[in-house]
Design a protein around this nucleic acid. Structure first.
Lengths: 210, 210
DNA sequence: GTCTATAACCTGATAGAC
DNA sequence: GTCTATCAGGTTATAGAC
């Protein structure tokens, strides 16, 4: 039998992903988790704290996997600049469905969070992103020597946008393609995303070089 | 004096953008708009209907501007395939700040909506996107003859992702760049976005050609 | 740690006078 | 069209027995 705390987190993750944070009540969560209503406030202090705990549980192993893949990529490059495709793969694969063990609905919550009001991003994600920013920032600068630092930040920003949209968008791809493509196809999503993003990162600099 | 209906729409747009749909009560809206609480249910039927009306008011002129710009691009191309940069510009500029007259906070709402639960996308946006999908789909296919139809849909999907993220993301770029770049710089945002997306669209096809 | 019961409050929507 | 007053129901959070 799984313990109460974990069952609450699992149920909350599932329901938040499907209906959003505000539209999901603690009553719905405790009902889904088959636990008592008061147990949420016993194990967590509030609904907000539950939401934070839910992200913290997933993000740490997810970022560990990113760093592990990046280490592997750099090991293979043997001192040379790493191929952009492989850097992008290390960055996106762990958050895509099937990319890391034991994460289920967190992708859609992550994708939604970037646009969420209320400072969730600054409060929860940002503090855990220092190592990622440092390591991937350096790797991209090294593999994209023709770009200014500012341009690289803009392009990482757009990369995260394409990734977040792939994680969280509901039925848009199916709609624009009239059903020809499906965002649920995880292999296609990853392959197409990496190809697109790599092309974007490799685009010529906007800055005239002397 | 602006009429009540418009004042409600303006106040709702502003507050929804700042705090989200669920966290904004009708009471907060009527207070901000300096109108009576009951007038919301008189002019619109419900909160959901108000949200729909709010999008409908902005999307139509915005898509008209996209088509107008596309017409101009194709006129200049004089029968040849249009340059990708110009197609992307026609697609993104009208929704970016300053790109169309009289829209204020709608960008962040649009950007957020793609990831929103509750079928808002299917209910409100999709029905108004037929002309856009048709015209831009054809133009991109013509200007990207090396790509399969499926690949083009995937890449338009990622383009919308990067665009939505630029519209709605709150402080992420500032965070990853440690303040070097700002998403509030509309000219930079548009220029960088177009360069990145154009590179992504132009990336080589994943499909082997015989 | 787990339960019941309830406090204290806020919400969207509406009835009915003007 | 605009107002007041209110309904009916939901919400988070907590107090206190076990």
């Amino acid at each position: 039998m799984i313990d109460t705390k974990t069952r609450i987190l699992d149920a909350a993750e599932r329901l938040f992903a499907e209906h959003g944070f505000d539209a999901t009540s603690l009553r719905a969560i405790t009902k889904e988790a088959k636990v008592n209503l008061a147990s949420v406030n016993y194990h967590f202090q509030s609904k907000d704290a539950l939401i934070e705990a839910l992200f913290v549980r997933r993000i740490s192993p997810l970022n560990d996997e990113r760093i592990r893949m990046l280490n592997e990529v750099e090991r293979r490059a043997a001192g040379a600049a790493a191929p952009i495709e492989e850097l992008v793969d290390a960055f996106v694969r762990p958050v895509l469905p099937g990319g890391a063990p034991g994460h289920h609905s967190i992708g859609i919550l992550l994708g939604r969070m970037y646009a969420a009001p209320g400072g969730l991003l600054a409060r929860v994600i940002a503090p855990q992103m220092d190592a990622i920013r440092e390591r991937f920032g350096r790797a991209f600068r090294r593999s994209l020597p023709g770009l200014e630092a500012e341009e690289i930040f803009w392009r990482i920003h757009f990369t995260i946008g394409a990734l977040a949209h792939t994680l969280a968008s509901r039925g848009l791809l199916e709609f624009i393609s009239r059903g020809m493509c499906s965002a649920a196809d995880a292999d296609q999503a990853r392959t197409q995303l990496i190809r697109f993003v790599t092309g974007g990162l490799r685009a010529p600099s906007l800055v005239e070089k002397p």
